[in-house]
Design a protein around this nucleic acid. Structure first.
Length: 938
RNA sequence: AGUCCCGUAGCUCAGUUGGUUAGAGCGCUACACUGAUAAUGUAGAGGUCCGCGGUUCAACUCCGCGCGGGACUACCA
């Protein structure tokens, strides 16, 4: 007879195969249609607020794996905060202005870009940004990221643009905004100044030239060796085009300089550089006529090598002897160090180059020539004049524009700055950095050093797509109008029309009729045309979003971005908040590393190791991508490769199958009526609940510390080892063979139910699709069941209220150690063909002392967890037994268990055949079957 | 070039204030089961803890010097 029908075999509609690629969109559709996010928010009203403020991705191009990683991480945090009892709103945002978008729009416009009106171009940029926001929004949603996608914040929203202007005006009215002629990175191709963040360094080939600057004064008192006629200072430069702007030559105050005789000339250079210099220029006949300190040279003069003016000799401690001559060509309008030196010596910040990189009339004979092509002309002219000692080429790292990839120049132009010193912005910022919790901790050190050393914030961008620098100044004397009225007027118009208002209306629209300059009385005014650095836009999101959205607040609890944002958003947000509010916009900052390939190399198109999120979703599903995010310790760079993703998918399958098995055994369990009180549960079951309590504690703690990889590891271990390989395997007999409503089976189901219910809650922040699906299955929810019954409205289980049972854990740890030895013995017996399935076995243990008593006492438990048909302690030595390495004095012999195999429960038992009506089954099964028979009759 | 971070099994991660034979999960190999079945169970093989020196009775752990990867800063006239 086939007893299969008399068993309680698992039943579930929760399929083994996840089919994530097909199933996920179905869930997403429902969540969107019924607005899961809004329902969650509604439910969370009144709970403590947790604000994770979204750093806006740039609205350009498809999302990449790094962006996906960041968004998933945020989603996991928010979901876990919600389940921990918080109200955790999520308002995603986009950064919409700026050069990259304008650059791409320019490419689309082609020749038209030169003639198109500014407002039309701004309109085109807006449309371009809108297009990508739409695309990215869909891509983010597909990841399962939950948020207010219908009302995100955009830095190009009119209200947001108004806030940007308002925040800028706060700086302006406070006196922190200054205008300076200062060297900045300048791209002549894009015709704009660039922030430090907008330059990247690549190798570049430059000319390397040594040039003589003849001295004009009498230097004989410094050194007799300098008395003779033809004396020159020798400088080195790799940018000959800056020579027309040369105003000085710098020496190190502490270096020893040498007067070197070469034929009938005398050259001045650092003593340490003489040998390498002579070697490089190929001169072997020379003589050091004397040495001296450069201090005596200060404020003396030499002659510009080819222009009709002098060049001042100055001292500067950044001069090195690593390269060059120790005499540094100094052009205050074309270098950062040079600029500082120029200020110290009262030199003009001279920069005779226009926006397109063409010399102005101030460059004398070179006016109208293009930089850097002019290098060749200058070098040739110097050769003709006999001032060029040597020319070669040098390959070195040189700053390039991040958009057009062309070499940039350092050029002084009038720019608007936020001063780091006025109103103590630097000091206050440094102070506030210390009040923020930086994770990992080195983030503090990094941003501290940056703020400490950064120059004033150059705000000006000579572009179209952005928010204007809302400054109106007197056309005659340059005085800036600073008035609350003007600020309000700007705010009003920007709210109505966006920042376009600035370019649409004449200056008079912003001013009250009859306004005159407070300084000179003029009635003629000029609007600033430059726009603000985009970092200012996203930087003020604390004011535009956190302070204004009802569901948020400022400071936010957390900013979470990649580690590059220390110099980006974390930085600009800090300055804009400290400058206007005197405090940081965040309580905590969490950073993650970059997504790199399996070998730890950066992803790049040229290497061809870029992994697109779309590909992963198509192949594995978003759920696997989410699980991958959780599996990686993001404090360092996070690796991704096909192997890694396959591994994550394997782990997923294990988790899914464990859930499926648990569900399958709960098909007839109603917690309301079938639950067995904890005190009535067998020890094994109480032990399992103890392990589960441990898991709850571990996972809830890991979420709190944002250590999601620990959640992943703990979940794997629990599903794979604690549940699947141990507990579930052992209780199989009870679940299948005991009476459906018997206490042993109901006890096991009670445990399964509690653990599964909790496990689904615990995993739902990461595995949102699977947790939702399994939860529906567990609670038999139909498609029409309200979303509020979904797992997302549940909270995390609380850990360990079961209370410690004295000695239970220790005893069971000991039993598990013994079991592990028994399975080894079983494995040997299987190999020797004594048994196949463990239930065919009888285990005989030989051991002395206290352990023997322990085993005797726990014989039933040990038999049960070893899943064998019989187990006993025997005396005397065991022939051919397995001798344990792990447990001293333990020998184990495995023989075929006595009796016959019960056709129902597969245990070998001497009781098989005792019941005449069912000769093939054991006593226990006979009872169960008899009861079933009786039940059917009654 | 400087500063910082990282380097433990094929992969993802643990590894307490230095203290027995360095762990887990996955993967891999073999076997078993066929009532979790495109599953499940069991066992096994995998490590120069990046390398070299040093401190110490004792170093994966502390120190120094390298190598590899990454980030940041500076680019140097």
């Amino acid at each position: 007879m086939d007893y299969r029908a008399t068993l309680n075999l698992p039943q579930t509609s929760f399929s083994m195969k996840a089919n994530l690629t097909q199933r996920e969109p179905v869930y997403l559709k429902r969540w969107e249609k019924e607005d899961l996010y809004a329902q969650l928010e509604e439910q969370a009203a009144g709970k403590p607020l947790y604000v994770l403020h979204d750093g806006p991705p740039y609205a350009n191009g498809h999302i990449h794996l790094g962006t996906a990683f960041n968004k998933i991480l945020k989603d996991v945090i928010l979901r876990s905060r919600r389940m921990a009892g918080f109200n955790a709103p999520y308002i995603p945002g986009w950064d919409c202005h700026g050069l990259p978008i304008e650059h791409n729009v320019d490419l689309e416009l082609g020749e038209k870009k030169k003639t198109i009106p500014k407002l039309s171009k701004r309109g085109a940029c807006r449309k371009y940004a809108e297009k990508w926001i739409k695309t990215q929004k869909a891509e983010f949603k597909r990841l399962g990221v939950l948020g207010d996608w219908d009302k995100p914040y955009l830095t190009m929203d009119y209200a947001y643009e108004a806030t940007i202007a308002r925040e800028f005006n706060r700086f302006l009215l406070s006196g922190s905004v200054i205008r300076n002629k200062k060297p900045v990175y300048w791209c002549a191709t894009c015709t704009t100044a660039l922030a430090e963040a907008e330059v990247e360094y690549h190798d570049h080939r430059s000319p390397s030239v040594y040039v003589k600057f003849p001295v004009v004064d009498d230097f004989s008192e410094i050194s007799p060796a300098l008395a003779a006629g033809d004396v020159s200072v020798v400088i080195w430069t790799t940018t000959p085009w800056t020579l027309p702007a040369n105003l000085a030559v710098a020496f190190h105050p502490d270096f020893v300089y040498a007067a070197v005789k070469v034929e009938d000339e005398t050259w001045i250079l650092a003593q340490d550089r003489v040998v390498p210099f002579m070697a490089e220029v190929g001169i072997d006949r020379y003589e050091i006529a004397g040495t001296f300190s450069a201090r005596g040279l200060e404020n003396r003069r030499c002659r510009h090598p080819f222009l009709d003016r002098d060049s001042l000799l100055v001292l500067a401690d950044y001069v090195t002897t690593e390269a060059g001559t120790g005499c540094v060509h100094t052009a205050p309008g074309h270098g950062a160090d040079d600029y500082q030196t120029g200020l110290r010596y009262g030199l003009d910040i001279f920069s005779p180059v226009d926006n397109e990189g063409v010399y102005t009339s101030e460059a004398g004979p070179y006016a109208g020539q293009q930089i850097p092509a002019v290098n060749k002309v200058i070098n040739q002219d110097m050769r003709n004049l006999g001032v060029l000692i040597h020319q070669s080429d040098i390959n070195h790292s040189y700053p390039h524009c991040w958009r057009c990839k062309k070499p940039v120049m350092y050029r002084a132009t009038p720019q608007w700055f936020i001063s780091m010193e006025i109103n103590d912005l630097r000091a206050k910022s440094l102070d506030n950095i210390k009040k923020v919790v930086w994770t990992p901790a080195w983030g503090m050190q990094r941003i501290y050093a940056m703020i400490e050393g950064r120059p004033d914030w150059c705000l000006s961008r000579q572009r179209s797509w952005g928010v204007p620098i809302t400054i109106i100044s007197c056309s005659d004397c340059g005085e800036i109008i600073k008035s609350e009225k003007l600020v309000q007027r700007i705010d009003e118009l920007f709210r109505q029309e966006g920042a376009d208002a600035w370019f649409r209306h004449g200056v008079e629209t912003f001013l009250e009729p009859g306004t005159t300059c407070g300084k000179c009385g003029s009635a003629s005014f000029t609007k600033e045309e430059d726009i603000l650095d985009v970092w200012f836009d996203s930087g003020v999101s604390h004011a535009a979003v956190c302070e204004q959205r009802e569901e948020l607040r400022s400071p936010a609890d957390l900013y979470l971005e990649g580690s590059d944002q220390h110099r980006g958003w974390f930085h600009s947000a800090l300055l804009t908040s400290v400058g206007t509010r005197g405090r940081a916009p965040y309580h905590g900052v969490l950073t993650h590393g970059y997504v790199v390939d399996g070998q730890g190399r950066k992803m790049s198109k040229s290497v061809g190791n870029v992994v697109a999120p779309g590909e992963v979703i198509e192949k594995f599903g978003a759920e696997i991508l989410r699980l991958w995010v959780a599996s990686e310790d993001y404090r360092d760079d996070v690796k991704v490769s096909d192997e890694i993703l396959r591994q994550v998918a394997d782990a997923y399958r294990k988790i899914r199958n464990t859930i499926r098995y648990m569900l399958g055994n709960l098909y007839d369990f109603d917690p309301a009526s079938d639950r067995v009180p904890r005190s009535d549960l067998p020890e094994l079951d109480r032990w399992a609940l103890g392990r589960y309590d441990e898991l709850v504690g571990r996972i809830v703690g890991a979420y709190e510390r944002f250590e999601f990889h620990s959640v992943y590891q703990a979940l794997n271990l629990f599903c794979g080892t604690t549940m699947s390989a141990f507990y579930l395997d052992i209780i199989k007999d009870r679940l299948y063979a005991s009476g459906a409503d018997s206490q042993p089976r109901r006890a096991a189901q009670t445990v399964l139910y509690e653990i599964l219910d909790g496990m689904l809650r615990l995993m739902s922040p990461i595995l949102c699709f699977t947790a939702a699906e399994a939860w529906e299955s567990l609670y038999a929810l139909s498609d029409s069941a309200p979303l509020t019954r979904s797992v997302f409205f549940a909270e995390f289980p609380s850990a360990g209220d079961g209370g410690e049972e004295s000695g239970l854990d220790e005893r069971w740890a000991r039993l598990i150690r013994l079991r592990s030895e028994i399975t080894k013995a079983l494995e040997i017996a299987r190999r020797d063909k004594i048994i196949g399935h463990p239930l065919e076995a009888e285990v005989q243990l030989q051991v002395g002392g206290e352990l023997a008593a322990f085993i005797e006492q726990e014989r039933q438990a040990l038999k049960e967890i070893s899943i064998v048909s019989a187990l006993q302690v025997v005396d005397g030595t065991l022939e051919g037994a397995f001798v344990s390495d792990e447990i001293e004095g333990l020998s184990i012999r495995v023989i075929q268990a006595p009796g016959s195999k019960c056709e129902r429960c597969w245990t070998r038992s001497k009781t098989v055949g005792e019941l005449r009506a069912h000769p093939e089954i054991c006593g226990r099964c006979a009872d169960v079957v008899a009861q079933m028979d009786a039940g059917q009759e009654g």
